[in-house]
Design a protein around this nucleic acid. Sequence first.
DNA 1: ACCGCTCATGGAAACGATTCCATCATGGTT
DNA 2: AACCATGATGGAATCGTTTCCATGAGCGGT
Lengths: 334, 334
Amino acid sequence: MSGPSQGRITIKEVAEAAGVGVATVSRVLSGGSASAETREKVLAAAARLDYRPSALGRNLRRRRTGGIGLLVPDITDSFYARLTDGVLSCARSYGEPVTVGVTGDDPEREAELIGTLIEQSMDRVIAVPSGDGEMWAPALRAGLNVVFADRRVRTDVPSVVPDDRAGVLTAVEYLAGLGHRKIAYIGRHAQSQRVAAFRAAIASLGLPADRDLVVHARSSRDSAYAAAAGLLQHRPDVTAVIAGGNVLGEAAVLAARELDVRIPRDVSLIMFDDVPWAELCSPPLTVIAQPAQDIGYRAAELVLRHGRRPPAVTLPTQLVVRASCGPKVSSPRR
Amino acid sequence: MSGPSQGRITIKEVAEAAGVGVATVSRVLSGGSASAETREKVLAAAARLDYRPSALGRNLRRRRTGGIGLLVPDITDSFYARLTDGVLSCARSYGEPVTVGVTGDDPEREAELIGTLIEQSMDRVIAVPSGDGEMWAPALRAGLNVVFADRRVRTDVPSVVPDDRAGVLTAVEYLAGLGHRKIAYIGRHAQSQRVAAFRAAIASLGLPADRDLVVHARSSRDSAYAAAAGLLQHRPDVTAVIAGGNVLGEAAVLAARELDVRIPRDVSLIMFDDVPWAELCSPPLTVIAQPAQDIGYRAAELVLRHGRRPPAVTLPTQLVVRASCGPKVSSPRR
DNA sequence: ACCGCTCATGGAAACGATTCCATCATGGTT
DNA sequence: AACCATGATGGAATCGTTTCCATGAGCGGT
């Protein structure tokens, strides 16, 4: 009865209780070879003492941390919440803990969080990168195992992204089919890829190109509202808008309501990202659904099985037609 | 030029580069006493080598992990996403990483996650407990620093919760004021506290008590829909329902729409938790707003400053009247 | 001039695990 | 009977940090 009854119990105490050496305990517990009898004794002792190996000790010796880091712009945004859910779901099946950080789409904050992560010896990270991803260069050189989600900003980092090009094209084609020619896009600052796809789609359909038809917002709700209201106010000639995310879409219907422009009579609206309330909205919103959860899950798979990794995974999007788009009005709204 | 140029650089190499001992480096970096000259040398060397102390080594020695663990039922639920955001926001100002786990309101999964957490040597945890919180007993005994959020299920654990009693009472009073007498409550399984408050409110206003007027759902959207649809179908006599959360509210308006019961003409609806889309909904939803982010922030404060901790913090809720409640219809709906 | 006090400093132990390596027993082969 | 191969086992080194303790220098007081 000499065991130190206080504090966490260690492998040493298990070894003592089982009457074997610490090396043997470690071997048995990590599936190494041992005689049936010894294995029995060790397992019994470990169970009796309710022994839990310390991840700290293990990781220090192994020189890597088990867990995975996840960096998202805004956990409050349903899209990133679902993406996070996907990551957590996959990580759970591997028993890996996930450390989450919020970047707010700010490269500086992102760099800071990367610092924290490598301080923690995390060697596997999933991130929705904020800027052009150049702050990742040092971490990459240091051997960090990174997978980008939702945005593909570096070709040397495996990425899991929605099929933006197809999604945007589908939306623009649908709108053009309804007769719209002045179509605007409201996006976040960081979505350069999607904006490029938008311009390409506009061009390919022979619609008038106009720089001012894409407006940007930062990741806050206020900024989104300002962008939407500004667009609706200053460009009475646009008859259809595409919102590049659910908070942008929300801001757009709010702004429209405030400015008394009716959807879809005055302007048609397509929102990226299908969220539960899109159906509850008045009018129900036509959306481009994105597989947020799958993106997270696949990204986690990629970062966990770090075999040879494909450079990029693209997941399909889907147009869900509801009631927020209508034929072009004959005369531009005043 | 003999430094091992591969892998992470350690305190030993910094010491060598600065021409001092490792103990001195450690002391300088953690704010201990040292001569100005030495401090200078060490700081210079550390900066030059871009040295980052390994949290692993530190934590092993200190026998505690810096980070904090966070357990929520469903990160996809806006309420818990905002709560998480609050926790992350507070933790960031302390430079503490946060490990997030999803319990799905399942005590078994929760116990499993607790195991992972203590394996990680996390000594500080914020949790939204699933059941009666009895699986926390061993962890508590082991000295884990736990704070409960959103639900108060044990008196021996500090908790940060919304003022459920006042919130429910406000909602019931408001509904009663509109003439409603058969008021139902749809809640999650785990919200025993709120259900008790509901019954108390009903009783205090002299309304008919009826066991069947509170129905429970599990944390999935499907379960929520089933519960709402069941209630609406089998109890044509209820003229007002209170939904105990935003996914329950969403399910209620969906079910109502499907069953062709109109809000608020046929039944009035009050939803717990104000979410951005409540205003966008048709009709805009009257809600009891809950300070989800504050709850998370305060819980994080509590768990980080583990001075003497108050047993419970209760944060106020607020009734936001929109358009989902109306006067009682004269005849029960068929 | 000596004593004792303070202060900076570096060596070494400790934290809890994994893993290399040496040791020893066993059993089969020549 | 001697020998080798095989496999189980435990001691000890190791990971990167913090912290205890001993050492030595500097210095003011008697």
